[in-house]
Amino acid sequence: MLKVKTPKNRRVQRELEKRAPRLVEKGKKTLLLQGTKTSNVLNTVLSEIYHLKRDNAIRYTRKNDSIRPFESGGETSLEFFSMKTDCSIFVFGSTSKKRPDNLVIGRTYDHHIYDLIEVGVENFKQMDSFTYDKKLAPQAGSKPFIVFSGEAFESVDELKHLKEVLLELLRGEVVDNLNLAGLGRVYVCTAISSNRVFLTHCALRLKKSGTTVPRIELVEIGPSMDFVVRRHRLPNESLRKEAMKTAKDKTHKKIKNVSKDALQGKLGKIYVPDQKLGEMVLPDKSKGVKRERREAKKKNSTNEPASKKQKEDS
């Protein structure tokens, strides 16, 4: 016999509802973790990514010896962590002689590995090494701009993949309304060669330009680094197809009586009800005008004197 189990308190229920699949998703949480060996560089890279994404990221600091994302069987504990923390992007750092300063960035679909890309970190400069006016420092959790440039992002398969993953990693929450005063940071990604991407984090300085659109200046605030693409694994076609499904716009209701015409543009039909003149209310409502009264008067005119007399008597 099955038993219905429901959460004992409201807090747990809210937490479960947050994890439920939804029609329109609002961005993914990030899990940052590392393998058995990491370097100093990787530790700072991971902690700074965590710092930048503090509002929707989780950082695991223990060693994980059973995680090898590219090997079969090495993804089980990763998938478990993804399920446990409800994170759909992970950044896994590890270093070895063959692949020094290795970052594996991957996404999951339904808590199973969706795709993977492996990059090496080079020329890393951490946040502390940049000097700038602290007034420019962006607010935590503000929505960043993301800028990609370079033809390699379109021509090279790996970089095309990396672009998509980086966009999803860095973009933050999907919002409907944006406060223009809160804009203050940019991620700049440039493809230097066919397997190397330069990534840096900048603050924005808005300057008056005389129009409503301000003039922009970028101030590098770090971290900045080079990504060298190593291995990558694209999702298989059927999984990709399933993951790309979107909710058909159910809010988009069919609008009646409005049609579009190539020549005339938007056309509307207006329904005007029949004018019932007989039932129309006349503006004059004084008692004397009413038909019944008039008719009644005519009828009673013969008896009237008698009744009046009677009344007078009584």
Partner: peptide, 22 residues
């Protein structure tokens, strides 16, 4: 009060979902 609010259009870049459609 905090500044001008802008209604953003929905993202056009197609990205995979994290969970299947309900």
């Amino acid at each position: 009060i905090d500044g001008p609010l802008v209604k953003l259009p929905p993202p056009t870049t197609k990205l995979p979902r994290e969970k299947p459609l309900p």
